[in-house]
């Protein structure tokens, strides 16, 4: 296939969903409690995530936001509570099983594979969809090579989407912070997730980079219909792009609802600004 064709095809791979329809609940968390020894990270937290929505989790530092994401994709196993994903009660599972079910994520501290190029990093996102075995890889002929090319095509679509064509062969360790964050998003997108967990995607970015990242998040949600759970400290961003927001403080849920409701919730204001005595 000619390179020129690909570049023209890629941006319109999936037609934009004209109106974002918020669907049914796909992830339902009931009474989640998580503790490490005597430290209670999460206490009796319940909330749900609806299909195609952008659901934000906010809260002061140490509120348990990242722990919440770790529970959702199986890195931590809560002691209590149940998780329903796509109508099925989820058993205790390993992260790679969650990945196979269509949950992808990015990390608060960039967790890219430092020694690999941007292209290889994003290719790992396709890992679950590649079916050839080790012996076929050793031959790198026929089916294995075909598969590599097919998936390269998908990865190039992601690269086009995130506008990082110029750095595809660069080792990620050499990239500036903002671009690394973008590559990490690319790796998650390459897995074509139905549920995307983003842990502080805009931390440490300047205004311009934040705007870019917001645009990517909204486009992902809009074009691919991906459900997004977002942790973010920038309240302007959260209130602008979220459909619903859940607020945690000291491992407890103190608010849940549309951005405007949450903004005016006295408990939330108290958690962020303190109360007058």
């Amino acid at each position: 296939m000619m390179m020129n064709d690909l570049i023209q095809v890629a941006p319109v791979a999936q037609p934009p969903v004209a109106e974002r329809r918020i669907g049914d609940v796909i992830l339902d968390l009931q009474g989640i409690s998580l503790s490490f020894g005597g430290v209670k990270a999460l206490t009796n937290i319940s909330f749900d995530v609806r299909e195609h929505e952008i659901r934000s989790i906010i809260g002061p530092n140490g509120a348990g936001k990242s722990s919440m994401l770790n529970v959702i994709n199986g890195v931590y196993h809560p002691q209590e509570g149940r998780i329903m994903f796509r109508g099925e009660l989820r058993q205790k599972m390993e992260p790679h099983v969650a990945a196979a079910q269509g949950i992808a994520r990015t990390f608060q501290n960039i967790a890219l594979f430092k020694g690999m190029s941007v292209l290889d990093n994003i290719m790992t996102g396709r890992n679950l969809k590649m079916k050839c075995n080790l012996f076929q890889h050793a031959l790198y002929w026929g089916r294995a090579r075909q598969e590599e090319i097919e998936h390269r095509l998908k990865v190039e679509e992601v690269i086009d989407f995130l506008e990082i064509q110029g750095i595809r062969k660069t080792p990620v360790g050499r990239l500036p912070y903002g671009l690394q964050k973008r590559v990490e998003l690319g790796r998650a997108l390459a897995a074509e997730p139905s549920l995307l967990l983003l842990d502080e995607p805009m931390a440490g970015m300047n205004v311009e980079e934040k705007q870019d990242m917001c645009r990517f998040i909204l486009d992902v949600n809009d074009q691919f219909g991906t459900t997004i759970v977002l942790i973010e400290h920038d309240m302007g961003v959260v209130m602008d792009i979220s459909d619903r927001v859940v607020v945690l403080d000291y491992g407890k849920k103190i608010g849940d609802g549309a951005p405007d409701e949450v903004k005016n919730n006295p408990e939330v204001i108290a958690a962020y600004l303190g109360t007058s005595h």
Partner: peptide, 20 residues
């Protein structure tokens, strides 16, 4: 893919597991 999964485990094992 085999080599990429080896290198992924080498560079960042938690992230590798999360990506499947």
């Amino acid at each position: 893919t085999t080599g990429r999964s080896w290198m992924a485990v080498r560079d960042m094992d938690v992230a590798a597991e999360v990506i499947g």
